[in-house]
Design a binder for these strands. Sequence first.
DNA 1: CAATTAGTGAACGTCAACGTTTAGTATTGT
DNA 2: ACAATACTAAACGTTGACGTTCACTAATTG
Lengths: 215, 215
Amino acid sequence: MSEKNASPAAGGPGRPTDEAKTEAILDAGRALMFAGRFANASMDQIADAAGVSKVTLYKRFGDKTGLTEAMIRGQAASMTAMIHAANRDAPTLRDQLRNFGVTLSAFLLSERFYHVDAMLTALRRDQPGATRRFFEAGPGTMRSELMAILGAAADREELAIDDIKLAAEDLLSLWRGFKEVELRFSARETLGSEELEAHVDHAIDVFFRAYRAQG
Amino acid sequence: MSEKNASPAAGGPGRPTDEAKTEAILDAGRALMFAGRFANASMDQIADAAGVSKVTLYKRFGDKTGLTEAMIRGQAASMTAMIHAANRDAPTLRDQLRNFGVTLSAFLLSERFYHVDAMLTALRRDQPGATRRFFEAGPGTMRSELMAILGAAADREELAIDDIKLAAEDLLSLWRGFKEVELRFSARETLGSEELEAHVDHAIDVFFRAYRAQG
DNA sequence: CAATTAGTGAACGTCAACGTTTAGTATTGT
DNA sequence: ACAATACTAAACGTTGACGTTCACTAATTG
């Protein structure tokens, strides 16, 4: 009555589960997601695209909501990694922020992000509150890492910041920017890399003017 | 072959169309939308909630996508009105911006907005590019109105602004803020009115420090 | 009254997707 | 060999919603 759950701990008799198939499913899901077709795709199509039987798909993920969650979870993990990678050392504070901002903005202003966001919206529609678990992995981590950078700068008295958290949120908002809105409405094309850098630099300019030491 | 289209120009014989029913449908749709249930609601349920036959519903809006579009269109119109109302005179620039920001942020940081956004996302999924038509009614108008305010302030040399458009986008981004992200992830409760005012004021503070005259 | 159009309620046909079952094959331990 | 488990392909039952049709009633013009 409880035997059918989770992994059979392996080692026992019987054919072992092929983990590669789990990956294949997630890969196929990601491909559909980034093509903006995941929400409309049937389980049959997903199984097909993954080269896997539908039964296997259901065995692994339970139902479509389960698969959706797993995919967002994977995306969240890769975002955390991305953010950590973005937060790398650089000669000056400005360079450090530039690194951070370019990586972040490149993601926020990409089609990729839009589709992840759309999936989150769909998930919330089916399971209100399910999205909360992904806050930490995404925006929460972003904010923490940026707070660390800004806190250090404040300690060095490079910046005059009262409330580090608020300041980090300000800079994040500027990086997200109005361009994200334009993209959401299909009111502009994706940014080229020069535009992106200009965008990030402008945000840093504004931020520095607002928070420079000795106001 | 072309007689069945549009309105029969009225005046002819026959029972006249009851415009109140059109409104009833839109009202019911709005109610469902703000309850976050529109996307899941069947046409039968909507017709039911509106106290109208399903046939009437189809006669007026064609299909569910048509109804969705009509509802967003209505929402866009009321947003335009709201923004105009928010842009009212006040003794000082700061007061004027506060009026604007509070009205805008109250909307952006409400459940209402989240659901409108979710509908836009759903619409874009079914008809890519359809959202573009709503950019002007929403964010576009916002930006224009704010640009007018900031432009005037720059002319009076109250602010030192190079690029009015960029500056307006900066302030809008700050008003939207990280709190919108937290709400999107259900990572915080809706703001109370004091919190809201504090949020708006903080954004204005940051903006003024970045764009004050005589830097 | 006759003609014409709007509206209703209920039933209908259709379809797409979900998730399950079945019968059989593949791969492993004992 | 044998038991146990993974996997597949195909078929199946079910549900839910879409959009339409039908027979009938309501309101309006001439």
